[in-house]
Design a binder for these strands. Structure first.
Lengths: 216, 216
DNA sequence: GCATTAATAAAACGAACGTTCAATTAATTC
DNA sequence: GAATTAATTGAACGTTCGTTTTATTAATGC
C-alpha cells in the first residue's frame, strides 16, 4: 500500500507532535523509538521522516516551540505597572498556569536537554535565560524600591523557579487541589519568601478587598 | 587474554559504580551503553556482568544506595530537640549538604526513575516517601506549636524539597558561592517561606548571638 | 480525465544494543 | 607446585535502532 485515503499532511504532523510529547514525557527521548511513535500515530515509521528529518529534529522542535510559547505567554501577560510586587505576582501566576497546562512538554524541556546537539542546546538555554532574567529584574527592582527583602537575587530567582516548576512533578488535574488553589498557595509562599511588603502590593491593587492582601 | 595482572574484584566493582554514576548523570541511563561504561573502567563489557547481572540491576543498586544513604544521613543528623524550627533547620542543612555532595547520584535518582521496573520503582518511592514524611511531620508540629505559619503542609513540603534539591541544577563547587553561603541563604528563605517565628528558633539556641536570629 | 503532486507503505541498510558463552590467565589455597 | 578459584577477554547471538530507498496510491490542478 501507499497513500491512504483521507491522509492529510497537516493532520499527520499535528498527530505526530502530540504523540511525541506524550511518549517522550512518559518513556524518555532515548527510550522512545520511532517505530513506537509511528504506531501511536497509526502510521509506518518511514512516514515520520516526511515531517521531521531526524529524531533529534523532532525533539528540538518540541522544545523550541515550548520555550517560544513560554516567552510569548509572559509577554502577553506582563502587566503595565512597574510595581515589583504586582509584577512578581503576575510572573508567578503565569509561570504556574503555563507549566501546569503543559506538564508533558515542560517535563521534556527540563529532562531531555542532554539529547540536543551543542548548538541547539545553546539555543534553548538562551531562551531559558531570557525568561529567567525577567524574574531577576523584577526581584532587583523590588529590592531597590524597598518592597522586597532578598539576600541574593540570583539565588532567590533560581529557588523560586525550581519551586514553581516543581509543581508539575506532583500536580495531577482533578485531584485534591485545583489549579487556582495551588496558584494561590504558591503565590503566598513566594511573597513570604521574598519578604514582600503587603502594603506595596495592595496599594497597587486598590480595588481589591483587604482580605486578599492579608492572605499574602 | 583473560584475567589481567593486578585485577581485583572489589576494586573493579567500585570503579564500575563510580564510572556509572558519572556516565549516567552525564548521558542518561538509556543513552549510556554497557560498552561505554566498560571502556571508562578500562575493561571489556562482558566483565561488568560479573558484578551486575543486568544494566537495570546496576541502576537500581545505585539508586537504592543513594536513598539509603539519605535516610541514614538524616537519622544521624536528626537533632534531639523537639523544637520544630530547630528540626527544620537541621533538615534543610542536611538535605542541601547531602545533595550537593552527591550531585550526580541525586540527578540519577531524580531523572531515571522511569527506567526501573514497577516493583523496584515502588521500592525507591517508598524510601522517598519515608524521607518526605519527616519534613511534613516537622511542619505539622511547627504549625501545632504555633511557631510556623503554613497554609498547606503537604504542598509546602513539596515546594521546599523542590526548592532545595534544585540546588544541584545550578550549583557548581568553587564558583561564586560556597556550600556554606548557599545553605545559609536557603535556610533563611525556608524560614521566611514557612513563616517561622524568630523567637522560637533563637530560644532553642540560647547561646548564639541575636544577629543570627535576625538574619532569618 | 489526465498529469502532477502529496502522502504513505514495505522492505531493507548497517550499526549498535544488552547479554551470553567458552576459553584463558592470574591469584590463592593447601 | 599442583589444584582450585577469581577475573577477565574475545567472539558471537539475536534484537532493535534510526534512517533510506523505492514503489504505490490518493488527492489536486488544469
Amino acid at each position: 500500500m501507499a497513500r491512504t485515503t483521507g491522509s492529510d499532511g497537516e493532520k499527520t504532523e499535528a498527530a505526530v507532535r502530540e504523540a511525541a510529547v506524550s511518549l517522550i514525557a512518559r518513556l524518555g527521548y532515548e527510550a522512545m523509538s520511532m517505530r513506537q511513535l509511528a504506531a501511536e500515530v497509526g502510521v509506518q515509521a518511514a512516514a515520520l521522516y516526511r515531517y521531521f528529518p531526524t529524531k533529534e529534529d523532532l525533539l528540538f522542535t518540541l522544545m523550541r516551540e515550548h520555550m517560544e510559547g513560554l516567552l510569548e505567554a509572559w509577554n502577553n501577560t506582563r502587566p503595565a505597572t512597574n510595581n515589583p510586587v504586582a509584577r512578581l505576582a503576575a510572573y508567578v501566576e503565569n509561570h504556574i498556569a503555563f507549566h501546569i497546562e503543559r506538564r508533558h512538554a515542560t517535563h521534556i524541556s527540563n529532562m531531555e536537554l542532554r539529547s540536543l546537539s551543542h548548538e541547539r542546546l545553546t539555543q534553548i538555554l538562551k531562551m531559558r535565560t531570557t525568561y529567567e532574567k525577567e524574574l531577576r529584574a523584577i526581584l532587583r527592582d523590588g529590592v531597590e524600591a524597598g518592597v522586597l527583602e532578598i539576600e541574593d537575587v540570583g539565588l532567590t530567582a533560581m529557588a523560586l523557579i525550581q519551586m514553581m516548576t516543581g509543581v508539575i512533578v506532583w500536580f495531577r488535574p482533578g485531584e485534591r487541589l485545583s489549579i487556582t488553589e495551588v496558584t494561590t498557595t504558591y503565590l503566598s509562599m513566594t511573597m513570604r519568601l521574598v519578604g514582600a511588603k503587603i502594603d506595596a502590593y495592595s496599594a497597587a491593587r486598590p480595588f481589591e478587598r483587604a482580605k486578599d492582601a492579608v492572605a499574602l
